[in-house]
Design a protein around this nucleic acid. Structure first.
Length: 211
DNA sequence: CGGCTGATTGCCT
DNA sequence: GGCAATCAGCCGA
């Protein structure tokens, strides 16, 4: 068996600066039951000092996993219908995490297709909410230890991605700290999500003149 | 293909 | 009450 390629990434992998972890997660395998996804796009969130991070305003019931140990999954619900998955990094209490944005399904294709009816194979995991959908990850996976190879959700080492194939740029879908190039992806990978720069929402009707 | 918009609910101010 | 680390569908070019 290819023990090397199948090894689970250890706790020490996650207990490092968030940008280093994000870089090295490119190419890694996310395993959930029969489905495996090779990561092609991630984003770094630098805990309490990052205005775009869910941890920026402190610990709450929703984000408490971010403030705990590295190597655990932070899964949140948003827009009334979507789940997104992060991996907690760095020392306990710092609340840094890497958002898993996109990748390629490399195992369990039939299961992934069944969860995303109508989607092309390229689109199965092309975006953070699509990725959790294809994997079958929801809020019940929040807090799971991804360094445990027997856990229903865990992360394994994948084929190395050389520096020459790594690109970076602004994060997607946020309205603050948009200048930070903390979105990392594999150059030319077809599963990388389309970049949509933030655009300020059109103002609602001017407030009625109040007197 | 790019641009725009409604969906739908938990969370935080 | 307002909005969110998004997506699918629809429209026009």
């Amino acid at each position: 068996m290819g023990d090397r390629a199948l090894s689970v990434l250890p706790r020490s992998f996650y207990d490092r600066p968030v940008l280093d972890v994000a870089r090295d997660l490119l190419g890694a395998l996310v395993i959930c039951g029969p489905v495996a996804v090779r990561l092609a796009e991630v984003e770094a969130y630098a805990g309490g000092h990052d205005p775009a991070s869910h941890a920026f305003r402190g610990e709450t019931a929703r984000n408490s996993v971010m403030f705990g140990r590295p190597g655990h999954a932070y899964v949140y619900f948003t827009y009334g219908m979507h789940f997104c998955m992060n991996l907690v990094t760095g020392p306990v209490g710092q609340a840094s995490a890497v958002l898993l944005r996109a990748g390629e399904v490399v195992a369990g294709l039939d299961d992934a297709r069944g969860r995303r009816p109508g989607a092309t194979d390229r689109d199965l995991c092309r975006g953070p909410a699509r990725l959790t959908r294809a994997l079958g990850v929801d809020r019940s996976f929040d807090g799971i230890d991804v360094t445990n190879r027997r856990a229903p959700l865990h992360i394994r080492k994948g084929p190395a991605v050389p520096d020459t194939q790594v690109r970076w740029g602004p994060r997607v879908g946020i309205s603050s700290a948009t200048e930070l190039p903390w979105r990392l992806w594999i150059d030319g990978d077809p599963t990388v999500s389309a970049y949509r720069p933030y655009v300020a929402k059109k103002r609602e009707r001017p407030a009625p003149t109040k007197n």
